[in-house]
């Protein structure tokens, strides 16, 4: 198929950017969206132009590196990551707008590449269990009810892609943060740091210039891992609980 791409080009963090238009043809339905960009880049390079920069690594939907806004939707029309989106989701002659995640907390580095280190700082501030190597009891010493383990797992599958922030009208990282808090606070292993964790992580989240949550639900619609709104309720519950608790 033949496509018209309008892609955000920005040379560097402080240089102004613009939407640039390109034509690509010979696109196969079996190509992934990133392979389509590979084709475009191959052509740009041979034309002596700079290829479009975009983050990617595993191309299997698990590392969370990739992610662009396609026609106004984070990761595009299907419920998956950009690398797992295939061109059969588009039609010959389509015009496709490709933009980077847009959020104050995710400054653009180049073209479609943004700096998501704010996520790492949120995790750093409490998204862990303090269990120094060697100190662990036998793995089966503490049974975990399957139901809790399953909810914890569902939330632990967050790949840190940032689509939730990109989709949220407020550029809020609440879904990401709620996934990590839900994962760890529901497990017995996470219980001792339960209050500190949620307070510290929300504090960092706010300090990183993310917006607040107005329960719009756009994040959930964009999340490739299906992290549910229930996790946000859990985050809020944990926050209020921690504020009541003496252990803060």
């Amino acid at each position: 198929m033949k496509l018209t791409l309008r892609i955000w080009r920005q040379a560097g963090p402080d240089t102004p950017g613009r939407m640039a238009e390109y034509q690509v043809d010979g696109i196969e339905p079996d190509m992934s969206f990133l392979e389509m960009l590979d084709v475009l880049n191959g052509r740009l390079i041979l034309d002596g132009q700079e290829p479009v920069a975009f983050d990617h690594d595993c191309r299997e939907g698990i590392c969370g590196s990739c992610g662009v806004v396609i026609n106004g939707r984070a990761h595009g029309p299907e419920h998956t990551t950009t690398c797992q989106l295939h061109m059969r989701a588009f039609h010959d002659g389509d015009v496709i707008d490709v933009e980077p995640w847009r959020a104050k907390a995710f400054p653009i580095i180049k073209d479609l590449v943004v700096d998501r280190s704010a996520f790492d700082r949120i995790v750093r501030s409490g998204g862990y269990v303090t269990a120094p190597t060697g100190s662990a009891p036998d793995a089966n010493a503490v049974p975990v009810p399957k139901a809790d383990a399953d909810v914890a797992f569902d939330n632990a599958t967050c790949i840190g892609c940032g689509a939730c922030v990109a989709a949220c009208p407020n550029g809020s990282a609440t879904l990401f943060t709620s996934a990590k808090v839900t994962h760890l606070n529901l497990l017995p292993q996470g219980a001792p740091e339960r209050e500190r964790r949620v307070l510290d992580m929300i504090e960092t989240m706010d300090a990183e210039d993310f917006g607040g949550c107005t329960n719009s639900g756009e994040c959930v619609a964009a999340c490739p891992q299906g992290i549910p709104l229930a996790s946000i309720a859990t985050l809020n519950r944990e926050f209020l609980r921690a504020n009541r608790s003496a252990k803060r």
Partner: peptide, 11 residues
């Protein structure tokens, strides 16, 4: 396995 479980890895 002990170490991972202590860290909250949801096996």
């Amino acid at each position: 396995i002990d170490q991972a479980v202590a860290q909250g890895v949801p096996f």
